Amino acid sequence: MTALPFDPLDPPTEPPPGCPMPTLWRIAHALHRLHRSDGDHCACGARHPCVHRRAALRALLEACGVPLPAPRADIFDLWHGILLVSPSRPGHQRR
């Protein structure tokens, strides 16, 4: 297995050099940051890592060009998570 272009436990805010999908990186990073660990639990209250945290990590890898087979559940969790970080969602408050 090749080395990852970022630390999966602490990915940088900006996409790594050569990242082919920087917009996906920024969206996934925002979701990853919202679902950080608080001991055994995620900031959202679910057991850590929650489905959104796992989906965000998969999206960070995809943004860097690391292909992963994505089960349908992961794709749903990613899009649901993106809606959670969308600033245009009514009643949305950023943390």
Score class of each variant (00 low, 15 high):
46 A>Y: 14
47 R>T: 15
67 P>S: 03
69 P>T: 12
13 T>F: 11
14 E>G: 10
40 D>N: 14
90 P>M: 02
87 P>G: 01
31 L>N: 01
25 W>P: 08
40 D>G: 13
49 P>R: 03
21 M>R: 15
39 G>T: 01
27 I>M: 09
64 C>Y: 01
2 T>W: 06
29 H>N: 12
32 H>D: 08
48 H>A: 08
94 R>K: 11
41 H>T: 11
13 T>V: 14
90 P>Y: 01
15 P>R: 01
11 P>N: 02
3 A>C: 10
72 R>L: 15
33 R>D: 08
19 C>F: 02
93 Q>S: 13
9 L>F: 07
60 L>N: 00
70 A>K: 02
41 H>D: 09
39 G>H: 03
37 S>Q: 14
73 A>W: 14
73 A>H: 12
18 G>D: 05
36 R>Y: 14
87 P>W: 00
95 R>K: 11
73 A>T: 13
1 M>F: 08
44 C>W: 06
39 G>I: 04
25 W>C: 11
59 A>R: 02
68 L>C: 09
27 I>P: 02
2 T>M: 11
13 T>S: 14
47 R>W: 08
28 A>Q: 03
94 R>Y: 11
53 R>L: 09
66 V>I: 15
45 G>N: 07
8 P>C: 02
42 C>Q: 08
82 I>G: 01
85 V>T: 08
23 T>G: 13
69 P>C: 07
38 D>V: 12
23 T>I: 14
46 A>E: 15
29 H>L: 05
12 P>E: 07
8 P>R: 00
6 F>M: 09
56 A>S: 04
74 D>F: 10
26 R>H: 12
54 R>G: 05
18 G>Y: 02
84 L>E: 12
9 L>T: 10
14 E>S: 13
45 G>R: 04
80 H>R: 13
35 H>W: 06
48 H>N: 06
42 C>T: 10
73 A>S: 12
48 H>W: 15
22 P>L: 02
35 H>K: 07
64 C>G: 04
35 H>Q: 09
77 D>G: 05
35 H>D: 08
24 L>M: 15
54 R>Q: 11
30 A>Y: 02
42 C>K: 08
71 P>A: 14
74 D>Y: 10
55 A>E: 04
22 P>Y: 00
38 D>T: 13
93 Q>I: 13
50 C>H: 05
56 A>E: 00
20 P>C: 06
70 A>I: 09
14 E>Y: 04
66 V>S: 06
93 Q>A: 15
49 P>I: 04
29 H>W: 15
26 R>C: 09
36 R>D: 09
87 P>D: 01
38 D>C: 12
23 T>R: 14
94 R>H: 14
23 T>D: 13
91 G>V: 05
80 H>E: 13
66 V>P: 05
4 L>H: 08
22 P>H: 00
81 G>Q: 00
18 G>K: 04
15 P>H: 03
11 P>K: 00
77 D>Y: 05
36 R>M: 11
92 H>E: 07
62 E>H: 14
58 R>A: 13
50 C>K: 04
63 A>M: 07
53 R>W: 07
34 L>N: 12
27 I>D: 07
